[in-house]
Design a protein around this nucleic acid. Structure first.
Length: 418
RNA sequence: GGAGAGGUGGCCGAGUGGUCGAAGGCGCUCGCCUGCUAAGCGAGUGGAGGGUGAUAUAGCUCUCCCGAGGGUUCAAAUCCCUCCCUCUCCGCCA
């Protein structure tokens, strides 16, 4: 959520940001609604003050004097109730609208409406070449008996799969590999809940906008997270940090659940786009002035990991129109997939500035009062996609797949296959 | 799943309808005092949102917050309802 004061102080900034996202929203009624809510609330408070003052007098009176005073004040009480409910109605209407307004776009975010407009920041590593006929990840996964999508579909439906055999050991090796690095960099490792209350999803900006992407467990009013970003962000909800405690850096391992509504026919091959996958996610709470540098830092950590896995990749600055509602600026890392002859997203790293923090009420103490702080998130490793990238890029002529050197100590083997 | 207890400010803890945002203690901050790791004395010390003010602070002022949300009342931390959480015992499962 953006600071509502912006409506009064810099409405043109909000308009510009919305335009960059490709949204044509007339904010005039929003401004009017905010003002009406504030004014009504003010009037209600004045009545309330008078009522309380009268109440203090009543406490001192006795007998018929008291009866008379009560009779006089009850009119004030009625008036207050009416004004208050009107103020609440207006505030509720404003909140509903305001919650749907996405974060202010950072000036440095790329222009454009879709992922086609993403701006390449850099390329690292040479696109993998083979002196034999390479195959795609789906074929490799099946042939090496690492991934079983058919039985996943039988048991759970499309876009579910089994990870099997060495792929499982590879997953846990990757997790260990990544956690070792992140812990050394000061990230506190976490295994957070994957079932959360509505508040956590609202607080992180996934609700109300992306409701259809989230699995719900309606009997218990709980939701399955699509990323541990949700439970990590909500971890410090409604808390106030001392400025010297910041930044607070975390790394959460969790299974992620996504309904992938509206993606029918997209990436149907293999494990690339599935309803359930495991991921290690970085999450940071920091001072507002530090978030741009922290964003670069998270990206650097991601690049370090991808480089250690010996994957060719590029970094893109995501176009304003393709940003999620909470992100002000976002970098994706895309790994080279030889079978598709293209770079595909394997990580994502966002500066959400104060958008989530304001919704979640995460603050920091400063000399001039408490302030909303900034939050950021970034993928350390999305297991499924990284395994696929490793399969394709590191496949050998004999049908096996070599393991990146840095990973071998965490695995206990140096190749996939017999 | 059954039975019970409880959730008050950074922490402990009092408070069962009236001037309580809330005694007392601890902690913390500032000052004083003290010739010495300490003690004593004094003052201050929650959060959210408005208004006013100003270069920006400060200050002044109003409303809300005693787990959350509703209700009763002129008036609620205190009474009623719903929910959440914690603890204890029993049961069940591992």
């Amino acid at each position: 959520m953006i600071d509502p004061a912006l409506l009064r102080t810099e409405p043109e900034r909000l308009i510009r940001s919305l335009r960059r996202r490709g949204l044509e929203i007339d904010i005039t009624p929003i401004i009017e609604l905010e003002e009406a809510a504030r004014k009504t609330r003010q009037r209600a408070e004045e009545i309330r003050a008078a009522q309380k003052e009268a109440g203090r007098e009543i406490a001192r009176l006795q007998g018929s004097e008291k009866e008379a005073a009560i009779a006089r004040v009850s009119a004030l009480a009625d008036e207050f109730k009416a004004l208050e409910s009107e103020a609440e109605k207006l505030a509720g209407q404003f909140d509903d609208v305001w919650a749907t307004i996405p974060n202010l776009v950072d000036d440095r975010a790329a222009d454009g409406r879709t992922d086609a407009d993403n701006v390449e920041v850099r390329r690292v590593g040479k696109q993998t070449e083979f002196d034999f006929d390479p195959v795609d990840f789906a074929t490799l996964g099946t042939r090496l008996d690492l991934i079983d999508m058919d039985r996943g579909a039988k048991v759970s439906g499309s876009r579910f799969g089994y990870l099997k055999g060495q792929a499982v050991l590879l997953e846990f090796g990757l997790v260990r590999f990544v956690f070792d690095r992140l812990v050394a960099k000061g990230h506190v490792p976490m295994v957070p809940p994957v079932l959360v209350r509505e508040d956590a999803l609202y607080g992180t900006g996934f609700f109300p906008g992306d409701r259809e992407q989230v699995y719900s467990v309606s009997d218990d009013d709980l939701y399955l997270v699509g990323t541990s970003e949700v439970s990590l962000a909500a971890y410090h909800g409604d808390e106030i940090f001392n400025a010297d405690e910041l930044p607070k850096r975390y790394a959460g391992f969790s299974t992620c659940f996504r309904r992938e509504a509206g993606t029918y026919g997209k990436d149907t091959q293999g494990l690339f786009r599935v309803h359930q996958f495991d991921k290690v996610e970085m999450f940071v709470f920091c001072r507002p002035e530090d978030s741009p540098a922290e964003h670069e830092r998270l990206l650097a950590v991601e690049e370090e990991i991808v480089q250690a896995l010996e994957l060719p990749y590029r970094v893109v600055n995501v176009a304003a129109g393709d940003l999620g509602s909470s992100a002000a600026k976002k970098y994706d890392i895309e790994a080279w997939f030889p079978s598709q002859k293209t770079y595909r997203e394997i990580t994502s790293c966002s500066n959400t500035t104060d958008y989530q923090a304001r919704r979640l009420k995460v603050r920091m103490r400063t000399e001039s009062g408490n302030r909303i702080l900034h939050t950021l998130n970034g993928t350390a490793v999305a297991i499924g996609r990284v395994i696929l990238a490793i399969l394709e890029n590191h496949q050998q002529a004999d049908g096996s797949v070599r393991m990146p050197k840095a990973l071998i100590p965490c695995l206990g083997f140096d190749h996939l296959g017999p």
